[in-house]
Design a protein around this nucleic acid. Structure first.
Lengths: 241, 241
DNA sequence: GTCTATAGTTCGATAGAC
DNA sequence: GTCTATCGAACTATAGAC
């Protein structure tokens, strides 16, 4: 079946452009990136970008949607699994715990940022640009991709913390996302701020570096979830205003 | 003294360009902004930007430094005042509390974002762009303007929370900044995610809107400080790894 | 100091050969 | 499908009149 083989090759060419675009957009933002730089990094001809995607704008949206769809599908699946487990284990087991909800929310994004094998390390920084942007494109993309999942997890957070007002749950969700985005896009700032080499250290194995290596994912997540969960529970003990 | 009067007028022209540049850079990022758009918004001639500032690049750095210097000076003063008060009130009173430190850290930025009278609402979004950027300019600007103050407050956080490891204090600081930046640059996302008009509301005075009005500054700050302080204290109770 | 006019680049996009 | 060549637009920056 030669057609399938050829299709496979072509698919690789398109994905090479998508991967290159992801990196160049992440490094420079939409306006700072050029289609020529993307084509060069992809090892493709500059005209192919317009042949495949029609425009720089459409390429950007394709790059963005590719990862965000995967992230949100995984978030949805993890949350659904937690809720199903809670129901099957006797109805009094009830809703998943706050820590479980936060893990389901953060793990797909943080894993993407920390695991180079998944190829999405650059998307993390791309997402920061879009989240920061106030232009029409940025708001449209975040709204279209993340509003629905946001409402889902705001509900789950509210359900996991008795006494948490709905408005407070929204702020807690936004705080969570703020930390999560900063966490998934390591800018190297943590290293700069770390204490000056705790010099007289005897066991070098102890210090794999402040920013997590891929296998530190669980540890980074656990630490961050603990931080956020404590903050959210503190919000439930006091009125919003 | 005509020279002084003329100087005053000129100073206004330069500041008009700075204000316009702040807004246009905040809306579109460095590459998305054009000197023509800045000049038009400032009501000035496009060539004046180069006459006053030399280049688009230099203008950007001037805009950035103007506010960050003011923010960090205020942070430094507030922290010093807290520490001086702690010392004068008997040596056992000791270091300022965690809540006091967080307030000193966040108040100057959040106030800037929420008080239109201070004219810095746009800088908040500009800072988000720079904080998100991984290019050389962004890293140089954040490092030059914010690394020193970061170390100061990391020390203060560590001093306020017994048992908090130094490395944990760095992560706590970064979490604080992540929330603070998101907080000072309202993108309107909170409104979108708020519950669908709790419709049968009898008293309209109760809902001034989810994003704070200027006079809500203290309330927003108190809520955020409570969230973060609880998260930081939770970090002190468990090892980093 | 402030303006007009424009030089010199670089960009996104496309036409057309193969 | 893939390439070369190039168009037209928009940009930063500057030269020079006033």
């Amino acid at each position: 079946m030669p057609q399938a083989a050829q299709r496979a090759i072509r698919r690789d060419a398109q994905e090479a452009i998508l991967d290159a675009a992801e990196q160049v957009f992440a490094d420079n933002g939409f306006h700072g990136a050029t289609t020529r730089a993307i084509a060069e990094l992809a090892g493709a001809n500059a005209a192919l970008i317009h042949y495949y995607f029609g425009s720089k704008e459409a390429l950007f949206e394709t790059v963005f949607a590719r990862r965000s769809d995967a992230i949100n599908a995984e978030r949805r699946n993890r949350l659904a699994a937690l809720q199903a487990a809670g129901q099957s284990a006797g109805q009094s087991a009830g809703a998943p715990t706050l820590e479980q909800v936060l893990d389901a929310l953060l793990r797909p994004t943080v894993a993407l940022g920390h695991d180079p094998a998944r190829g999405g390390a650059h998307y993390a920084r791309l997402l920061v640009h879009v989240a920061a942007g106030t232009d029409a494109r940025s708001r449209r993309l975040t709204g279209a991709s993340y509003d629905a999942i946001a409402r889902l997890f705001i509900d789950a957070i509210a359900a996991a913390v008795p006494g948490l007002e709905r408005a407070s749950a929204v702020h807690c969700y936004l705080n969570t996302i703020a930390i999560g985005i900063a966490l998934m896009a390591p800018t190297g700032r943590a290293q700069n701020l770390m204490p000056r080499q705790p010099a007289p250290r005897q066991d070098p194995r102890q210090d794999p570096g402040p920013d997590a290596a891929p296998d530190d994912l669980d540890r980074v997540l656990a630490r961050t979830v603990r931080f956020i969960a404590a903050g959210i529970r503190a919000m439930a003990m006091a009125p919003t205003r």
